[in-house]
Amino acid sequence: MTLTVSNLTVHHGAICAVNQVSLTVPAGKLAAIIGSNGAGKTTLLRTLSGLKHPTQGEISWNGENIVGTKPEMLVRRGISHVGEGKSVVPELTVKENLELGAIWRRNNQESKESIENVVSIFPRLGERINQRSDTLSGGERQMLAIGRAIMSKPQLLLLDEPSLGLAPLVVEQIFQTIRDLTNSMNLTVLLVEQNAMGALKIADLGIVLNLGSVAVAGSASALIDDPAVRSAYLGY
């Protein structure tokens, strides 16, 4: 299933955070959106998951326009959003956070099976299944956030800065896991990252956002080789 965004414009009050953005992520592909702070990456992602309303433009998922659909309904259509900063409920246990992801299915048996699946992907979560999630390390919390999203059995996964505040070794693990999940679950993934190099390495496509607009788009490997992108975002 393909995600197509056309001429999307989003405002924060009077400020235009996303300006006439168009992009396409084909089914089963991993697209990295990179760009500096304030480039509109998070706003774009929040608009895609229905948390924010666009001023104009279209978002087409699986051939249908989803602008105006609430986030709780978009989950039911296969769109899962992992928010910025380890999107877990700190007061709930690891198990409860995972159950949350499958709660709308109202099928406890299926939920149990999904938890086993997530635990097989992230064994660390299995070891801490009954702990409160605010006792987890940053990396474990990010695993839990991704695990919760997977519990919903998504087809489109929106990830907002999963590497934020994590140690380099953990970042590498998380990125590798995202790549593996994309392949094994045949997910379409939109990955927003400040860690441009790490994200482009695992991505199929790369999109550079600058001041709310698409500056460059293309295959991830082409972006890594692009001298302009290198000097501006990859730092060498």
Partner: peptide
């Protein structure tokens, strides 16, 4: 669980499909 999640983190609850 829905009551607790909606109270603590309404946004995560919505993103989990809960009609907050």
């Amino acid at each position: 669980l829905a009551l607790r999640a909606s109270a603590y983190s309404p946004e995560i609850a919505r993103l989990s499909g809960i009609k907050v």
